[in-house]
Design a protein around this nucleic acid. Structure first.
Lengths: 351, 351
DNA sequence: TTGAAAGCGATACCAG
DNA sequence: CTGGTATCGCTTTCAA
């Protein structure tokens, strides 16, 4: 039989409240008594108040639910994602709160069940889109949710369209007119290869949708029609998938003078593909990524910097104590185009 | 006021038990009544039984605690670690169980508090050593713990010493006698640079201790004394730290003919360092890693393969239903030396 | 099938 | 500073 508060109280000869106070409100009793209680607890093998019972009574679960798709590997392999999680974990720690990973597998029912069953004080949505059901379930719990697409919700993010538009403008300014774009989650079959995207706005994946839209706008402003831009689907967000997708852009004639990707990981893969073909980044082919992960700097890659760590931190703060002022519930962080050596003027005679 | 089971029961005009059954034991009532109850719930905005209350009553938290040090980034950046977590998550999912990340920061008290407060059914220890206090706290909870060093505990791992001894023997067989070893957590100041390790057995870090010991044994058997082996501390388990540490081995005369590392990530850094210096892996300098992460194969790197995914899966199973038979509570998985192009005969005239 | 009653283990208010 | 009392929201026999 596991010892409880009562067990200890009986042993010491005090009431439950006093034992509870010994653990939760040290100022409510004498140090001597407190020590005596702890001694008894140790002797009985009592390791402190039961967290579940405490949560029930206090009305606080003491954990943040992190919703992500079962592609756990990709979620944690992406340095951007890791930074986001770090920021979140930092705030969680400061608030004595844990992080409960809620894996969403492909089977709908199980996923919904998991969301409904999670003992948490709120959710951070951190997964590829298409999980509206899971997000709905999170909402239905009546708990705060950060980054569901729902209006009025808590949100922290960046102006994706403006950020990628800036990158597109940079490219246009350099004179590039034969451009390929690599993105994930833009093909129905999730495979690698060229796909026709009539209108980026209609894409299901939030990130790809917004970033492609930004590029489209920048190109349009420079007179480059979207239909002349090659869009290539990557099977996932990884360096390898980026390289594989890049092949569809590089091994064709005429070769694009610029290949941009919606994430740094993909763009690093493009650089790998260039290296394989002995093409020079920024000279033969310009490359732009997105995120500015550490490897991007090391690869001298032009990219859009977004504050991943801050995003995680702010997500945590929004969740743990949501501002009353609706205006402060939706936070848009600044981004910055970081120009490095992977972009340069379009090769002459290339148009 | 948030709706509860009672609210719904009152609305429908049945008892709490019936509503509870509607959610947890569908076979206990008529489908019509069940639907009626769900309708009422929806109308009232009741999203199902409160997870915390349910946990308290059922005596099951529905989550596994994962103990790891706050170097969250390194925990998730290491592909080996990610694989382990995937395996764990897989089993957790199958058992409708969540994963609660319990970050252990450097401040002791907060960490212990976090362990004591985690609403979980057991712990998986997944952190660098030196956290005996936290592990003790986990034990004190009276819950199952996988991979605490405690004897009699649940354990899943590999024979680290034998595995690295095999790698060392491979090196000896190839004739290498000038060897450098790179490892993390072997220097008191956690910096990068050469350190003198009199006896590997005395190292604090479990992994580094065991793996260095295995190498030491293999070298000794071939007549190479440990005092002639250069040991270099890496400031962390990453490619970059590996490359930085490798500099201490490569930029000296006479240069070692082989540089081995305790993890693939570090060893990949060594390969990077070789590339920078235009040295050929397996010809000028042999390199061996440990783990066999995907990048290792891609880099044609000799390494020790360990089943990361299985390790995670088995950890999960051990925790979720611990075998009665003590012998089945400690599981040692097989490893395999994978010889690739990064190792070759010691350059002639090198001795 | 359905419902009444008894906790699960702890906390908080409020007298004493 | 201490202790009684009333929950927190749900599950689970056991009768009806």
């Amino acid at each position: 039989m596991k010892p409880t508060l009562q067990t200890v109280a009986d042993q010491v000869g005090v009431s439950r409240s006093t034992v509870s106070n010994a653990y939760s409100r040290p100022d409510q009793l004498s140090p001597e008594l407190r020590e005596k209680i702890f001694d008894a607890a140790r002797e009985l093998g009592y390791s402190g108040p039961n967290p579940t019972a405490r949560s029930l009574r206090r009305g606080r679960a003491g954990a943040i639910g992190v919703l992500f798709t079962t592609a756990l590997s990709s979620a944690f392999t992406d340095p951007y994602a890791v930074q986001f999680l770090r920021g979140l974990a930092e705030i969680a720690e400061d608030n004595r709160t844990g992080l409960l990973l809620v894996p969403l597998r492909d089977d709908d029912d199980g996923a919904l069940e998991a969301v409904r069953n999670a003992a948490v004080d709120g959710f951070v949505v951190y997964c590829v889109p298409g999980w509206y059901q899971a997000m709905e379930a999170a909402w239905a719990r009546g708990l705060p949710v950060v980054n569901s697409d729902r209006s009025g919700a808590l949100y922290v993010g960046i102006d994706e369209v403006a950020a990628s538009r800036a990158a597109g403008e940079h490219l246009m300014r350099l004179g590039h007119r034969r451009v390929a774009i690599i993105a994930d989650y833009i093909s129905p079959d999730r495979g690698t290869g060229e796909v026709i995207i009539k209108a980026p706005e209609e894409l299901g994946s939030y990130v790809s949708r917004e970033r492609l839209t930004g590029y489209r706008d920048a190109f349009a402003a420079a007179g480059l029609d979207w239909s002349h831009v090659t869009t290539i689907s990557a099977a996932g967000n990884s360096r390898e998938h980026g390289a594989a997708a890049a092949a569809y852009a590089l091994d064709r004639a005429p070769r694009p003078t610029a290949v941009v990707a919606t994430t740094d990981l993909l763009a690093l893969g493009v650089l790998d593909a260039l290296a394989t073909r002995e093409l020079r980044p920024g000279r033969d082919v310009s490359v732009i990524g997105f995120d500015d992960i550490p490897d991007a700097a090391q690869a001298h890659m032009t990219t859009v910097r977004q504050p991943a760590l801050d995003r995680g931190r702010i997500a945590g703060r929004l969740l743990l104590d949501p501002p009353d002022d609706p205006a402060r519930r939706r936070i848009v962080l600044p981004t910055e185009l970081v120009v490095r050596a992977s972009t340069g003027p379009a090769p002459t005679g290339s148009v």
